[in-house]
Design a protein around this nucleic acid. Sequence first.
DNA 1: ATGACCCCTCTAAGGGGA
Length: 276
Amino acid sequence: MRLATWNVNSVKARLPRLLDWLADKQPDVVCLQEIKCAEAAFPADEVGELGYETAAHGDGRWNGVAILSKVGLADVTRGFAGDPGYAGEPEDGNDALFPTPPDGPPPHETRAIGATCDGVRVWSVYVPNGRVPDSPHYRYKLAWLEAFREVVTTELPNGPFAVCGDFNVAPTDADVFDPKAFIGQTHVTPAERAAVTALLETGLHDIIAKPMKGDNPFTYWDYRAGMFHQDKGMRIDLVCVSDAIAKGIGSTYIDREARKGKGPSDHAPVVVEFIL
DNA sequence: ATGACCCCTCTAAGGGGA
């Protein structure tokens, strides 16, 4: 199976590039993040012409995830039980960790979708950004990661399993261009890294794909200030797989070519191949 | 050259990304 993950930063804005990339790279299963459209607005017909079935989970404006597959798409799960949701900030008049709106439970953002593709259970996730350490958004990020761990522990015994996506965490200092540049910021704090480690310790392997140029396995480069051509990036898009898949991993790459040129996403696709 | 933010929409004196 050729499995890919890509934060496209709007599937509508990226559609021409996405279609060209799918036709060129021919992945079997693709996890997308930040589709930024409602499920009904996803260009399923366009990717369908290339042989892909689509399962999408989106709310229209922010976030949004999808799975595309050429090898079957069964048992689709949108969201997950235990998702803490995010409902507001202290400035809104409530300083509780996850303030509950007066008219109901916190809304669940569209950040996770699961499906079974040719016997492999696959999740596409877009972990909350966190914005600023110790903010409500940051606490939501940590709670979200902890809650998602339950999905993994529940489903991992059932067979080959992969969780792919934008984790918004750089697991180690080797995953950022300059650790000093990130002091005091999210994505690198001990608590965020511990949350990802805890997720992996359920029995997953973080597959670090091969960079196409240089030694840095970065998957994201800020649009601003020429960060990409200076290779000032981060590795925050992860492919985490169960033992059975890890044993069968073959070629892997981070497609930095897809970050070049006119109108790219700020993230590059990550591609791994494996046999079971 | 990969070349110096870009996505969304309540089209901004905006929100969010990481």
